[in-house]
């Protein structure tokens, strides 16, 4: 039987990190969350080149905060909250938001990161361009709902707003995306 996320966090809390069991538990957590976190950060920040570093930083913070984790909420919500805060800080720190998405696609082209057909890359570019035009909090709420499947309550914990505010953010994001698509 596989351990639940909470079991893994408890194992990290109980053991010294350098103990084999502590390391094993944390490694399992990293394997579970690296993909969804990386994709969320990538889509939210819009720059692939920083997404991997940010994801790594998220795990470092998760490990540092693990002793203080209280089992009141879900582990996934807690981890995504850390990812959201770090990504927000990154966006604020760089202060070159307008160039974020441009940077993402320049990187993608230069490094040939997408081995798929050109059509699918163009589609991705379209989606990312549209996402870039939505305010940051609306974009985060919509991505967490549609791509990561979180409930409004969970998103409210991640973004630190009320569930009613999440409903409004998602509604406005969808309306904006719809408008952008119909303009095209």
């Amino acid at each position: 039987m596989t351990d639940s996320d909470l079991d893994l966090i408890k194992a990290v809390q109980a053991e010294s990190f350098l103990s084999p069991r502590g390391q094993q538990a944390f490694e399992e957590l990293v394997k579970r969350y690296q993909q969804p976190l990386f994709n969320f950060v990538c889509r939210y920040v819009g720059e692939r080149s920083v997404a991997e570093d940010l994801t790594q930083e998220v795990f470092l913070r998760v490990w540092q905060a693990a002793p203080r984790f209280e089992a009141r909420g879900k582990v996934s919500t807690w981890i995504f909250k850390i990812a959201y805060n770090l990504s927000m800080n990154e966006i604020k720190r760089r202060r070159r938001y307008q160039n974020f998405y441009k940077g993402f696609w320049d990187d993608a082209r230069a490094e040939s990161l997408f081995s798929k057909q050109r059509d699918s890359r163009e589609l991705e570019e379209d989606i990312m361009r549209a996402l870039a035009q939505i305010p940051e909090n609306q974009r985060a709420a919509l991505l967490l709902r549609v791509n990561d499947g979180f409930s409004y309550k969970e998103i409210s914990e991640i973004l630190n707003v009320s569930p009613a505010a999440v409903e409004s953010l998602i509604f406005r994001a969808r309306t904006k995306l719809r408008e952008l698509r119909s303009e095209k």
Binding site: K31, Q34, N39, F59, L60, S120, I127, N147
Partner: peptide, 24 residues
């Protein structure tokens, strides 16, 4: 549906190992 068409990107192959050694 449009948003769900975003492809899923893979982290680089040695990512887990890199995270763990960084933590150690």
């Amino acid at each position: 549906s449009f948003l769900r068409k975003l492809p899923t990107h893979e982290v680089s192959p040695g990512f887990t190992r890199q995270v763990m050694s960084e933590l150690r």
